[in-house]
């Protein structure tokens, strides 16, 4: 499971349907089923993460798998071990699934070619973040009953966002209309080829939107001179009480987290009635349970 780009509409629907059935397990008093007993899942995280890593760990544990977390700061990566050597050593311990997050685009593909285990991409550079897109689509489908023909605005640093990229692939496959907006420095040049509308103003993308996905502004990128200041960014691209009125009355507000309050989203919107940000987190566990279930066991 390396990217949404490789998935067909039927495959996406299978994952979402399976995830819908897994929601119930997390609401039980005993939040555990024996499905993956005896399976081992390695979470190999070369980048910081709270939600995704915890979500994968909880998903594995609720399926009775043993989950092991390796983060780059506490592993032999600090001693200079390469990804390839780490992968070969992990493989020698015979896990069943390796979940990887890496700052380099393509790292999960490299890993998948090296090891015999199933590999799940938990985010690679600015390339893809497939489980985020799946949980976003699950949330949209649960709230709107469909994805097809919805108008979805994705706003922020599109060029550096793996969340945007995976969502665009998935939403287009599912038949949604996607509009993106951001400062010119944050929009990749080839955007129209992905079949999306491109706007340089937030207001235009918001007009008539059923769903708005706000992306996190990567404050750590500020020194790369792609935007002058957070305050200027917020003045033009912060979702607030005024501009949200341009969207449909029953608009869903989404954000992959972690949020910068007052930068890309006003606090009263993040915590407001349109926000499904915490539903996204809940659904994330179910989506990851679904993938772990579908990807373990027999080959094929």
């Amino acid at each position: 499971m390396l990217g949404i780009r490789d998935l067909s509409r039927e495959e996406i629907i299978l994952v979402l349907d399976t995830a819908d059935s897994f929601i119930e397990v997390s609401t039980r008093e005993i939040k555990k089923v024996p499905t993956l007993r005896g399976k081992t899942i390695v979470n190999l995280f070369y980048e910081a993460s709270t939600r995704t890593r915890t979500s994968f760990e909880i998903a594995g544990k609720r399926l009775s798998a043993d989950t092991i977390n390796i983060s780059s700061t506490t592993s032999s990566v600090v001693k200079g071990e390469t990804l390839i050597d780490t992968a070969r050593n992990l493989e020698a311990m015979n896990p069943d699934v390796i979940v990887i997050r890496h700052s380099a685009a393509g790292a999960p593909h490299l890993l998948a070619g090296l090891v015999k285990q199933s590999v799940i991409n938990a985010g690679d550079g600015a390339h893809e973040h497939p489980t985020q897109a799946l949980l976003d689509m699950m949330t949209i489908r649960a709230k709107k009953g469909r994805i097809e023909n919805l108008r979805i605005a994705i706003v922020g640093d599109i060029a550096h966002s793996r969340v945007a990229r995976s969502n665009i692939y998935g939403l287009k496959t599912m038949g949604a209309q996607v509009a993106v907006a951001g400062p010119a420095t944050m929009l990749p040049r080839d955007m129209e080829h992905m079949g999306v509308e491109v706007h340089s103003s937030l207001e235009k993308a918001l007009a008539g939107a059923d769903v708005v996905m706000m992306l996190r502004i990567q404050i750590e990128r500020q020194h790369q001179n792609i935007f002058p200041s957070l305050r200027e960014y917020a003045r033009h691209f912060c979702l607030n009480r005024q501009n949200i009125a341009l969207a449909k009355q029953d608009v869903l507000v989404m954000h992959p987290g972690p949020i910068n309050r007052g930068v890309e989203i006003a606090p009263e919107i993040a915590d407001g009635p349109f926000s499904v940000i915490l539903n996204q987190v809940t659904n994330g566990v179910a989506v990851r349970m679904a993938l772990l279930y579908l990807l373990t066991g027999g080959k094929g």
Partner: peptide, 9 residues
């Protein structure tokens, strides 16, 4: 763990 295609849940 014996069957290849996972049954739908």
């Amino acid at each position: 763990s014996r069957i290849n295609k996972k049954p739908r849940i």
